[in-house]
């Protein structure tokens, strides 16, 4: 990871404002921002470890532990609620065998809340491994479950 961060800062610069882009890059590369990487990032951008820790923990996107092999981000915001989102959330947790905000024991899937994907007229919506899916119903949950099992 040290080599990756060195190469990244060489290309993009090592000023403080590069902290979020660098954290995104680290997460893209490793899947999460490990606690052990925090001092490396701090050194690379000449920040304190507390500074970097504070930023990592402030933003919902940054993970400190690995996610499941598949990630389903299900919208919990008002527009999806207006279209039955709460019932779909409960059904998704049951169908996928994992509680909202958790990673399943076998590491196959993480079910995460997201607050609005901007698809508000066609909810309930989700991002399944980054792919947007609209109008989620029981059949759509079955397809997602099959995709995850494959």
């Amino acid at each position: 990871m040290e080599e990756f961060i060195e190469g990244w800062t060489a290309r993009h610069g090592a000023t403080r404002d590069q902290l979020l882009p660098l954290l995104h890059a680290v997460q893209e590369e490793a899947g999460y921002v490990a606690d052990a990487v925090v001092p490396v990032i701090a050194r690379a951008l000449n920040l304190s470890r507390a500074d970097v820790h504070g930023v990592v923990t402030f933003y919902h996107d940054f993970r400190r532990t690995p996610a499941g092999r598949h990630v389903v981000k299900l919208c919990r915001a008002e527009s999806c609620q207006a279209r039955g989102g709460a019932a779909i959330e409960a059904a998704a947790a049951q169908r996928l065998g994992v509680a909202m905000g958790e990673t399943r024991g076998d590491g196959a899937i993480s079910l995460e809340p997201v607050y609005c994907l901007g698809l508000c007229a066609v909810g309930p919506n989700a991002l399944v491994d980054g792919r947007p899916v609209a109008r989620i119903d029981g059949a759509a949950l079955d397809r997602i479950a099959a995709e995850v099992a494959a």
Binding site: T15, R16, D17, Q18, L19, L20, P21, L23, H24, L45, G54, V55, F58, Y59, H60, D61, F62, V114, Y115
Partner: peptide
């Protein structure tokens, strides 16, 4: 690119976020 913080839609929080802060 933001990082999942709704409050960054507030203009001064957004500026701090661009600067690499909470």
């Amino acid at each position: 690119e933001g990082a999942g913080a709704y409050v960054c839609g507030e203009e001064t929080a957004l500026l701090d976020s661009i600067e690499g802060k909470r």
